[in-house]
Design a protein around this nucleic acid. Structure first.
Lengths: 255, 255
DNA sequence: CCAAAAGTGTTAATATTACACCCATGA
DNA sequence: TCATGGGTGTAATATTAACACTTTTGG
């Protein structure tokens, strides 16, 4: 049984390969059908949902670890990442699980996995349609959830999610967003929906467009969105050079 | 020799008490004579300056650890803290030191202190005049430096400092500041100097005053600063209730 | 009595918000 | 042809920036 072996090795030997006491938790945001989504995992045998996460190899950059973890969960490379907070609460977890989880498993009582962890929180922005959610070895399901309709989360993951979303809301008032969340070509209404969804409030159509165009990060194409009812909206792409530049400098406006 | 014993115990036994692979680095800001200051330590035997830092006890909240560390360095309790970033670079340090540091010391080659560390960065705001800088066991000196005139820092501490200052600059555009950096009674020019020093640019006297008063976090006293040449400025205190409230909600203006 | 610093108010510029009309399209 | 959503411009308001005169005081 490959699973059994893997788990046992992970619990009993993992500390030889990974930094102990340190974990990574990721809040992966996607945008689909005008809804902001988050990727969650359902742990095997336990019926609990958790954020995707993992550990840092001893000879691995922290950010490389995050990318590795997220590539495993989503199939994507080149993911936008933002480190938003590190969680150090004493009671935040320890990997406490009911006995049944370990039936048939030979796991040492002093496994590194039962130690206390400090967790570094990252949020990621990904293009929903390109993601192939892949459960990890400990989990059964990997699914998208609407941010307004999350299941109960284990440990302090609800808190981590809340902090991530808040951080994201703050971020988009200062830095451009969308390149990582939208398809290559998108419409102004698409972009506005994205902002509205993240900020969780309505924005004025005309003012939004004016501000966005003023940032200079958009290219309007000589195409309109095909196959829509009513007047077809223009398609846009991001002006990557300007976008990247603004990612560094920030623009100072509030939507 | 107490020092020798302590160091040996710390290097050889510390992993039993502290979380391995995790450190804390603090950027302690003070304000004195219209200069923004940072507290640095000079390591014994090495002539290198570092940020104050430390480790987390296995049964200690992370924030409690930071407070403990800073109380040891400054003599203060109740310090304003802000976690600004976590540093996970592979090459960021490891505690590499020249051989001479270990002359006469019996330290195991596999001491936890030679492992790789992920470091959680906090900045602290303290009232300069109340601080009694106290070196730690590994260091010889603990001194204030003007932020514009820092010595060379070991490891990636210059980078950590830069990120802290940047984070602080960002912070003060959204949240009140000063309660932890100024004496209880202060003048409007004092407060302005503080802002100017942190932001590293001049502000308009009149507009500054208007905005500050508009926030409602200040109480003007019926006293003026004694013993000054020229017209004496009013003294202010912070309205703690309003200050604390604004610390949570933030005010949205840019200086 | 004057230089130097502090207190205060007004005006101009800019940014933000609110709002209304026309256009294109598929049903 | 009409209901729906998209494109655009302008006026009102709020915020920010620029700026000048008066007051106080120690030397």
């Amino acid at each position: 049984m490959e699973y059994k072996e893997y788990i046992e090795k992970f619990f009993n030997q993992g500390h030889k390969h990974y930094l102990s006491h340190i974990s990574i938790d990721c809040v992966v945001f996607g945008f689909h059908e005008n809804e902001l989504k988050v990727l969650l995992l359902n742990m095997k045998n336990l019926n609990s949902w958790v954020l995707p996460g993992g550990f840092i190899l001893k000879d691995e950059e922290m950010e490389t670890a995050v990318k590795r973890i997220l590539t495993e969960r989503t199939g994507l490379t080149d993911i936008f990442l933002h480190q938003f907070q590190t969680f150090g609460g004493l009671s935040r977890s320890s990997f406490t699980v009911p006995e049944l989880f370990f039936k048939n498993l030979q796991i040492k009582k002093d496994s590194w996995m039962f130690d206390r962890f400090i967790s570094v929180g990252y949020y990621a922005l990904v293009e929903y349609s390109k993601v192939k959610p892949i459960p990890d070895i400990l989990s059964e399901k990997c699914e998208w959830f609407n941010v307004h309709d999350l299941p109960e989360l284990a440990h302090d993951h609800r808190h981590i999610f809340d902090e991530a979303w808040q951080s994201l809301r703050f971020w988009i008032n200062h830095y451009p967003i969308g390149y990582n969340l939208l398809p290559e070509k998108f419409t102004m209404p698409d972009l506005q929906k994205l902002y509205e969804t993240i900020l969780d409030r309505k924005l004025d159509r005309r003012n939004f467009q004016r501000k966005m165009l003023a940032t200079g990060i958009l290219n309007r194409l000589n195409e309109v969105k095909p196959g829509v009812a009513h007047k077809a909206p223009y398609l846009y792409t991001f002006n990557i050079a300007a976008y990247e530049k603004t990612l560094k400098t920030g623009f100072g406006f509030a939507l």
